Structures are given as structure tokens and as C-alpha cells.
Amino acid sequence: MIGRKNLTTVTEFIILGFPEFPDLQIPLFLLFLLIYLIILMGNLTIIALTCLGPRLHTPMYFFLCNLSFLDISSTSVTFPKLLDILLRKKQRISISGCFAQLYLFVALAAEEFFLLTVMAYDRYVAICHPLHYRMIINKRLCVLMATGSWILGFLYPVTHTVLFSLLSFCESNEINHFFCDYSALLKLSCSSASTIEIVTYVVAVFIAGPCFISTLVSYVYIISTILTIHSREGRRKAFSTCSSHLTVVILYYGTLMCLYMKPASMQSLDQNKLFSLLNNVLIPLLNPLIYSLNNKAVKAALRKVLTRKPVLTDTQRRRSSQKQ
């Protein structure tokens, strides 16, 4: 059990980053800076196209816009500190700053569970009940589902973040990770962490479990419906409307399973660091590509924005006609 008094003697943590590559800190900084900029540019492009393209003012792209904002937020929780570590060796972080980073990282990860589940339901209604889609997935329901996802995501980590603040850290303060990771912090604690582990697993089962099952059931119905379509072209069009989301779901749950669905005896901090990096980089980096490369509406909106002619004022039109 966690003691009533916090016997913490550690006042700050040291995030090691990637000490395995002492001679590659600057190249790693440049690589991660490039990745971060691509993530920002790609997801901001999706948000801008959704706002500017009238054809993209639909529930699917409304949720995609939320997902892009989520990807920007999640990488911004970890990447700025990582870049600071690699460039300026600013490895120190206060205990409160560390817990804040942990809370935001877990909250945004939980939000992705909820948002992907909502998007799966949207695709289920679009394919299985196309005639009633506009009536069921209306603007009010979209806002309610998106808002509910954000609220639940930020409520999810409150309990075990509070429990983390009650732990004692009285020995090493070096975090062998690139951010304040859950498993890395537990290894540093010199007090019992059994309560946190139980609470975390119980809450995760009640949160991630229903999200995963709901998404799985939605795609069982979606695939069953697609298989009943007689024409090949009809099946192709139906599948194309959900293929991007399905790809993102597989990538997201796949990396999480590699990270957490392993026996404790097989887990190592170096492996957890690698899979955490993949999860923190791969999903936000690929999401804009996945949703745009196979999406005619997004590509059409992008072409329209890129080829849009500037609007001339009356004065500019007169000057142009005089020159001609």
C-alpha cells in the first residue's frame, strides 16, 4: 500500500533520452525536428483543408479534424522536451512538470481510444445504414460525441496521476526514457506501486476494453455489409470509405499491443522506449498521409486550394486593365 506521507527526497528527474547514441545527439535532433515539423505541417494541412473545403464539411472530416488536432497535441507533449535534451542537454525536469507531462500523455492516448471508436461508429452508420446516415449522424450528435471523447480522455488519468504523486522517490532520479513514462517512473519508486498497477489495469480494462470491442463489432458489421454488395465497384467504393480509418486503427492498436501486451518478464525499458517512440511518431506522422493519399475529396480540396486564384480588389482590376 502507498504510505500516507510522501517521503520523496528527489526534487527533480533527469530524462536520459537516448544515451545509447552519445555521438548521434545532433543528428537525432535534426531527425526528430524534421519529423516534428512534418507532423505539424501534415496535420495542420488536414485541419486547414477541412475548414476551407465545403465538400469536407461532413461528420467524417469533422472527426478527422479532431484527430489531427489530437496528433499535434500528443507529439507536442513529448517532442519539445526531447529536442531540448538532444540539442542543449536540458535533461532536468521538475517533479510537477514530469507528472504534468505524464498526465497529458496518458489523457491524449485515452482520447485517441474514444475518438477512434466514435469514428468507427460513424463509418458503421455510413455503410450499414446509408439512407439514415444524415438523420443519425447529425451536427449535434457529432459535437456531443467529440466533446464527450475529450472530456473522458482528460478524466481517465486523474486517479493514477494522483496516486503517482503519493509515491516516494528516494534513490535514483534518472528516467531511462525520452519522456516521463509510466513504466520508467514505477521502476524509480522506492515505495510499493501495487495500488497504482491495480488501479491502472482496472481502469484500462473498463476504458480500452469497451472501445476495442465497440470498434471490432463495428467493423464486423461493416465487413459483413460490404460482402453482401453484389457489384465489385460497389464493394470497392464502400470499402474505400472506411479503409483509411481501419488502417489507423490497426496501426494504433498494433503498437499498443506490442508495448503493453507482454509478460513482465519479457519487458525492458529499452524495448518500451522503442515502441513508445514508434507510437508517438508513427501514428501522427502517417495519419495525414493515410487519410489523404487514398481520398479523392481531400486531394481535390488540396488542388483547389493550391490552384485558387487571388481575389483582386477593384483598384487592382482597374490597374490590370489599364496595363492591358
Rank of each mutant, 00 (worst) to 15 (best):
T313P: 01
L256K: 08
L306P: 04
R232K: 11
T215P: 08
T195Y: 05
L155E: 09
I207G: 02
I26Y: 14
V248R: 03
L115Q: 15
K5L: 12
S244P: 01
P263R: 02
S194Q: 11
L285C: 02
T228V: 06
Q316D: 10
M261N: 09
A100R: 08
L115D: 12
N6I: 13
L269R: 07
L246C: 10
T9N: 09
S191D: 06
F62I: 08
L259D: 11
A238T: 01
K323Q: 13
D71I: 00
A297K: 08
G17S: 06
C258A: 09
N173G: 09
S73I: 03
Y121S: 10
R235F: 05
E197G: 00
I151H: 13
I72H: 00
I136F: 07
F114E: 10
S240I: 05
N295M: 11
H132S: 11
G42S: 00
R317F: 07
I175G: 05
D122K: 02
T255C: 08
H177Y: 09
L259S: 13
G17D: 03
F69E: 02
I2S: 07
P210N: 02
C180H: 08
E233I: 04
S244F: 03
L104W: 11
T228A: 09
N138G: 00
I137Y: 04
Q101D: 12
K323I: 12
S214E: 12
K90H: 14
S224L: 12
V217A: 14
K139T: 10
K90S: 14
F239N: 00
R303F: 13
E112T: 04
Y260T: 09
Y253N: 14
N173V: 09
K5M: 11
Y36I: 01
S68Q: 04
I2H: 04
V118F: 07
S76R: 02
T228R: 15
T58K: 09
S94D: 00
A126W: 02
F32C: 07
S149F: 00
H132K: 13
V298W: 05
A238E: 07
L115S: 14
R308N: 10
S240W: 06
S74R: 07
V249L: 08
L116T: 03
T255G: 03
K323Y: 12
T58R: 06
S96K: 12
T9K: 14
C258P: 00
V143I: 14
S265Q: 13
R317C: 06
T307E: 13
I15L: 12
L227S: 11
L24Y: 14
F105K: 12
T78G: 06
C142D: 07
K90L: 07
Y103Q: 01
L28E: 03
V298H: 03
I196C: 00
T50K: 07
T195I: 11
K296S: 14
L131Q: 11
I127N: 00
T307S: 15
I47D: 03
I226W: 00
L115W: 13
H245A: 08
F29T: 01
Y219G: 02
L246W: 10
V220H: 04
E174R: 15
P27C: 06
V205S: 15
T195H: 06
L104Y: 10
C180G: 08
I47T: 05
V203M: 10
T255P: 01
S76F: 05
M266W: 15
I226Q: 00
V158H: 10
S292L: 08
